[in-house]
Write a protein that binds this DNA or RNA. Sequence first.
DNA 1: CTGGGTAGCTAGTGATCGCTAACCTAGTGG
DNA 2: CCACTAGGTTAGCGATCACTAGCTACCCAG
Lengths: 202, 202
Amino acid sequence: MKEPRLRLSAQQRKAAVVETACRVFSKRSYHGSTTAEIARETGVTEPVLYRHFASKRELYLACLDAVWEQVRELWEKALEAEEDPANWLKAIGKAYLEARAAARIVLVDLWIQALTEAADDPEIRRALREQVRQVHEFVADVIRGAQKAGGIVRDRDPDAEAWIFISLGLLSTIDNRLGSLVGKEFDDIIASRRAWMTGKTG
Amino acid sequence: MKEPRLRLSAQQRKAAVVETACRVFSKRSYHGSTTAEIARETGVTEPVLYRHFASKRELYLACLDAVWEQVRELWEKALEAEEDPANWLKAIGKAYLEARAAARIVLVDLWIQALTEAADDPEIRRALREQVRQVHEFVADVIRGAQKAGGIVRDRDPDAEAWIFISLGLLSTIDNRLGSLVGKEFDDIIASRRAWMTGKTG
DNA sequence: CTGGGTAGCTAGTGATCGCTAACCTAGTGG
DNA sequence: CCACTAGGTTAGCGATCACTAGCTACCCAG
């Protein structure tokens, strides 16, 4: 007979489950991750998951939301701490990479894996699509703000540049998962983009 | 009792299985795709798969190889058909996008999904890593060739630019799967990159 | 002291997964 | 005409999946 775990309030337990599930989902694929593993890593049994979420997919969608909320807060703090508009993009990029290195944030990892399920599952596709749109809007707004404040030259297209920012995040995630293929060239790319954005290109 | 299917030689049947498997794997995730579905879509029964491949994973790795081989041939033909070195990058990019639109090529789709399995499976990670490296090398070589031929300005870093080319391919694939979020801005991005590479930036 | 609400558990369910043993049968060479 | 090879099949294996019925134990209100 198993010792009953520490009794938490429903809210606390639900948050704990989501946190664990984000970590588990970000490692394997949706179908590759099992509810049994999420429960075990959380330190509870499976029925506890189903007390808080109607299905595995609903838990997954909750993870998507939770992680983007986390990233948004991280970025807002990073922007507050950075005064020079020329460094705003760099600040949120750096904040994301540092948080990922500390294994706290798994946004793009969840995206990549959600993509492989999106073909089957209209609900996941819709959620992912909306989230990507929000992230793009956030980044584009940062760029627009930096342009108004004089940190980025005006004739760069904020929407287009935001997409490039995101696609470099994708590249970085792949590099991270495959074990540093890009290497130091990634820093060169970032430096080159920064020069381009601030108008210091030869 | 089921009518026995058309009898093919081992080589023909194996090729047919790989072709079907590529299509099936590229839609769903590795764990989400079933050997039953691959068999059914091929028009045979499951044991036939296992006559040609020792396991589902071995079939998957064969798909990875086959698709990259396909893309490589496609790109080599596209390069032969394009005389102006300034258009070489555009040529292979366009060739890839057109082939994908015709649902013939699924390279990046397989990558994205292989990534979600790479954490678990060292063999998939190794294969994917090697393939990404080869694609990067191919693209970087195209850029170096174009530089020598005078189509691309010399002080662009071929390795860095090749990574950007790849990351835009990632973005395009995501856009394709989510149903055109980026839209016409993608063309703007490509045009902007081309101007940058050919030195016609203001 | 007690009874209801709730957070947790045990012990499964049917479905489906990757995979295989055993058999069938169309060709082919002697 | 027979034996053998090789590309098929049927039927079903054990394992594992998402999910659940039903019990227990703790906490707090009355």
